[in-house]
Structures are given as structure tokens and as C-alpha cells.
């Protein structure tokens, strides 16, 4: 009987000790879990904040891209308008239509002229040639050739050459002025479709 009571007591004591131990283990785990939870929560909050920031940034970027796209569309529309205006301004030679071209040529007299009349005549001739060149440039176009020589990151020589080759006929002198050695000849030409018809 004594032994049985002793054993019972021992068992109850061991049970009590075991529950205490389990309780202590459970609180530590809960604390740890709570800490982990709070950390995870903080991480989640941070992630949320980061996501919100990223969303705002994305929204801003979207807005900016929309703005840029709008600007691009505006620039494109402007360019198109410019091109349309240029196309409207650029005359095209059609049948039964004429194009009127007016230019001003300039020429100067040589230094060694024997009289003002000679100076005028020579300057006028030079001005006519310049006006012919201008007409040829307008009607036929210019061939341009450029060459730059660069040595040790420095431009040594920059050359631009332009060529014009054309045949001009029926150009009329409208007005000639001669002032201080400079002669200006205003010249015009009417180009019709039949002039180019073969």
C-alpha cells in the first residue's frame, strides 16, 4: 500500500513537472512565432509600401510615356502639316500651266576698268551670269560634294564643292541696278510643260 501511494505521488509529481516543462516550451514557441509573425508582418508592410511606391512610379512612368507619346504625336502632326504646306508651296509643272521663276543676280566690276560705263557693262555681265546660275539651281538643282579632313581629333580642312550644269533659254531681264560698284540684275523665266516635252 505504501509503495502504491508512493508511486502515485511520484507519478503525479512527474506529471506536474512534465506539464510545467511543456507549458514553458509552448510559451517560448509562441513568442518565437509571434516575433516571426511580427517580422513577417513588417516585411509584408514594407513589401506593400514598396509595391505601392512601385505602382505610383509605374503610374508616373505611364503618365510620362503618355505625355511623350502625345508630344510625339503633336510633333508628327506638326511635321506632317509642314510637309503638306511645303508640298502645297512647291509648284509642280503640270500640263497647260507655267511656272514663274524670279531671281536676282549680283556682279561687281573689275578694279582695272577704264571708264564707269565699262565697269557697269562688265558688272552687268557678271550679274547676268549669277542670275543664270540661280535659275539653273532652282530649276535643275545643285550637286554638292563635301569633304572634311580630321587629324588628331581636329578639323584640318573642310571643303564643300557645288556644281550646277544646265541650259537656260528665254530668261528675261526685269530690272538692273548699279550702286557702288555692285550690279544687281533681276531676272525672270517662265517655264511651261511644252519646254520639256520631247
Amino acid at each position: 500500500m505504501k509503495y502504491s501511494i508512493l508511486i502515485t505521488l511520484m507519478l503525479s509529481a512527474s506529471a506536474l513537472l512534465a506539464t510545467d516543462k511543456a507549458q514553458s516550451v509552448d510559451t517560448a514557441a509562441i513568442e518565437q512565432t509571434n516575433a516571426e509573425l511580427s517580422r513577417v508582418k513588417a516585411e509584408v508592410a514594407q513589401a506593400k509600401a514598396e509595391a505601392a511606391l512601385a505602382t505610383t512610379k509605374a503610374n508616373e512612368a505611364k503618365k510620362e510615356s503618355a505625355k511623350i507619346a502625345q508630344e510625339l504625336a503633336f510633333v508628327k502632326a506638326e511635321k506632317e502639316e509642314e510637309l503638306a504646306a511645303a508640298a502645297a508651296a512647291e509648284e509642280v509643272l503640270r500640263k497647260n500651266k507655267t511656272i514663274h521663276i524670279s531671281v536676282v543676280g549680283q556682279g561687281v566690276a573689275p578694279m582695272n576698268t577704264s571708264s564707269p560705263a565699262q565697269a557697269y557693262a562688265l558688272a552687268k555681265r557678271a550679274a547676268i551670269a549669277d542670275a543664270y546660275r540661280a535659275i539653273a539651281e532652282k530649276v535643275k538643282g545643285v550637286r554638292i560634294d563635301g569633304q572634311d579632313t580630321i587629324k588628331n581629333m581636329m578639323v584640318q580642312r573642310s571643303t564643300i564643292r557645288t556644281y550646277v550644269q544646265a541650259m537656260v533659254k528665254n530668261a528675261d531681264i526685269v530690272e538692273t541696278t548699279f550702286k557702288e560698284g555692285l550690279c544687281e540684275v533681276e531676272m525672270e523665266i517662265l517655264i511651261s510643260h511644252s519646254d520639256f516635252a520631247q
Binding site: 551670269a129 543664270y132 546660275r133 535659275i135 539653273a136 539651281e137 571643303t159 564643300i160 564643292r161 557645288t162 556644281y163 550646277v164 550644269q165 544646265a166 541650259m167 537656260v168 533659254k169 528665254n170
Partner: peptide, 9 residues
């Protein structure tokens, strides 16, 4: 009508 030849440098 004259042939125009212009060379500029």
C-alpha cells in the same frame, strides 16, 4: 539659250 556651268568651292 546658254549652257550654264557653275563650280563653287
Amino acid at each position: 539659250g546658254l549652257n550654264v556651268s557653275h563650280d563653287e568651292k
